[in-house]
Amino acid sequence: MKLKSVVSMQKVSKRFRKTQALDDVSFEIGPGTVCALLGANGAGKTTAIRTLLGLEQPDAGCCRVLGWDSQKYSREIRARVGYVAEKPALYDWMTIEETGWFAAGFYPPGYQPAFDAYCRQFDLDPTRKISELSKGTRAKVALSLALSHQPELLILDEPTSGLDPLIRREFLQSMVDVAAEGRTVLLCSHQVNEVERVAEQVVILLNGKLICFEKLDELKERTREVILTLPESDAVVPDLPGTVLAQATFGHTRSLMIQDLNETRLPDVTQNGLVLEIRRPNLEEILLGLLRERRQFDNSGREMNGPDRS
């Protein structure tokens, strides 16, 4: 059976007391894709992942993973998905070997030899106790555990935060390997430059809302940063041909993040003596622009609504 989407979220909302963790979020990830889930801390990324795995029940909407409804088939999903949590929960008193043996009990035969092979690949000493391991080694154990049943979908929730460059590169390479076999990866990370190397699709969340769901190539291809030098700092910025995503002012210069910029119409704007520079921003700059812009927007919205932030 060929699935159309490996991961799908349809109008999912989830609230924890006063916090709207997910607000009407919809996206889909096709098979064999590496998809990055980005957003500021507390944007709802982990909640999205936990909801997909059926570890949280959504207040509204529907999640499906590998064609299974997350609410009803959490066990089936977790048996077929590899998941590396930000803080992997491992039994401190076990050795690496024992951890693999213990986990093998939950999966079909073949798990343990695969786990042993990953341990060799990641240069792990199987006789060491989990409690003695460094953060990076623990992360490698968690990754080995997540990969050993050949999951059709690998979900990584900030797997590389606080790890050294070599281990980060090893993680990246195993992700490439998973993708090369046509399996799907959902990656949540703040290392935007690493994400940029491997991701094909990006999902950006902000305060629980989906603000971007696009192919990375297209997002980068469509977005330009236009830098204007204004004669006076309070001069009016002319209308530019395109959709303004974000803007920032630094004294006399104004930087605008613009989507679908029509460059042929730019000379009309530059006539009145403005100096223009056009750049192709990288993913980090696009992300920063979007996050900053929305934060300003939200703050001003809140101030208008009431004096609760005095």
Partner: peptide
């Protein structure tokens, strides 16, 4: 090539 340079195989 994808592995060495850590980019997506596609």
């Amino acid at each position: 090539m994808a592995r060495i340079s850590a980019v997506n195989p596609n």
